[in-house]
Amino acid sequence: MEKTWEQLEEYQPMVLKMVGNSLKKERVAHAYLFEGSRGTGKKEVAFLLAKSLFCTNKQDYRPCNDCVNCRRISSGNHPDIHMIEPDGQSIKKGQIQALQEEFSKTGVESNRKIYIINHADKMTANAANSLLKFLEEPSSQTVAILVTEQIHRILNTILSRCQVLSFKPLLPKVISEQLVNEGISTTIASLIANTTNNLEEARRLSTDAWFGQCRSIVLQLYEVLNTRPADAFFVIQDKWLQHFKEKDQLSFGLDILLLVYKDLLYIQLGDEESIIFHDQVVKFKQYALQTSSRRISDQITAIFEAKRRLHTNMNPHLLMEQLVIKLQEGLKLV
């Protein structure tokens, strides 16, 4: 579904404000560089800007998303908007040269032309140098939009010729609300939103059976630690290490376990709005009464330490056993 200006404004208020001001004052830059992590809306805003420049039914400067031009841009069929993607692993010189040749012609329907280079950091050195020449002689009717997740890999000479707009990671609340709007339960949406700030990744996790099992195994380990501590090692052996096999998976499992202990702190602080495991509140309140804030802080520290040691080539089985011992210490107030 196409995002409206208002929807993208919720995700990236500063970016949309700057783009909006440029459109209002009719001072659109000849070259932009949209940079930020994956899933923050860079490409969507690039197409939104293109629509704003071609829309025949704008509300002030905002595109209608429904006129012929807006629909053609959405479907990738507007003749005066050109998109360049990596050809294999890189964007090659020939692709930039073909673009320059295309832009030397008169626009099909107007004098304005827009080109969007996705993953601009993947340009070869020759491609980047060809683009640089293109940027040095801008046409007043040409707008370039470069999109990248790796701004440090863009030539300084190209950066200096672009207006750089930085896209911030999405807030958990924004991701959670979007997932709920797409039919994901509040419980799952809240957990996913606190494990990634990437909306695309969040959507992938929402349909991933492996992720669904993560939650179940983490909660099982936590409950066993509180009710049958001696069985915790069996859960580690039979469930945890069988599911979290790779280092990044194990780190992910620890991230979810961390959220459990954070929920206990929120309960003790009376901040129930921040709780992530909504369906576990009754149980968590019982556990929270049996321990102290200091102990929970120590347990959170132990999990952070386990994550750190995970990347020192420590044996995962030994790491988890040692973590379980630390988490078991002082579970109840004396």
Results as ranks from 00 to 15, higher is better:
1 M>G: 15
6 E>Y: 03
10 E>K: 12
15 V>T: 10
17 K>D: 06
20 G>Q: 14
23 L>N: 05
23 L>M: 13
26 E>M: 13
26 E>I: 04
27 R>M: 08
27 R>I: 04
29 A>G: 12
31 A>R: 00
32 Y>L: 05
34 F>W: 04
43 K>A: 12
44 E>W: 02
46 A>I: 05
49 L>P: 07
52 S>M: 07
56 T>D: 15
58 K>I: 09
59 Q>W: 04
65 N>M: 14
68 V>C: 14
70 C>S: 09
74 S>C: 13
76 G>R: 10
84 I>L: 13
85 E>K: 06
89 Q>P: 05
98 A>G: 13
98 A>H: 12
100 Q>V: 09
103 F>W: 06
103 F>C: 12
105 K>C: 02
105 K>P: 03
114 I>V: 09
115 Y>M: 09
119 H>W: 01
119 H>P: 04
121 D>A: 04
125 A>D: 11
126 N>M: 15
132 L>C: 12
132 L>S: 15
133 K>C: 15
133 K>L: 12
134 F>N: 08
135 L>K: 10
136 E>L: 13
140 S>M: 13
141 Q>D: 13
148 T>Q: 00
151 I>E: 09
152 H>I: 10
152 H>F: 01
152 H>M: 06
153 R>C: 10
154 I>D: 11
158 I>S: 05
164 V>L: 05
169 P>K: 03
173 K>F: 05
185 S>T: 14
195 T>N: 03
203 R>F: 01
205 L>S: 00
206 S>A: 11
217 I>W: 00
217 I>F: 03
220 Q>M: 14
220 Q>N: 14
224 V>E: 02
224 V>C: 06
230 A>M: 12
233 F>M: 07
235 V>E: 00
247 K>L: 11
248 D>N: 09
250 L>W: 02
250 L>I: 04
251 S>V: 02
255 D>M: 03
256 I>A: 04
258 L>S: 00
266 Y>S: 03
292 S>F: 06
294 R>S: 11
300 I>N: 03
300 I>T: 10
303 I>W: 00
303 I>T: 02
310 L>K: 05
313 N>S: 14
315 N>S: 07
317 H>E: 15
319 L>I: 06
321 E>I: 00
323 L>Y: 06
326 K>S: 02
328 Q>T: 13
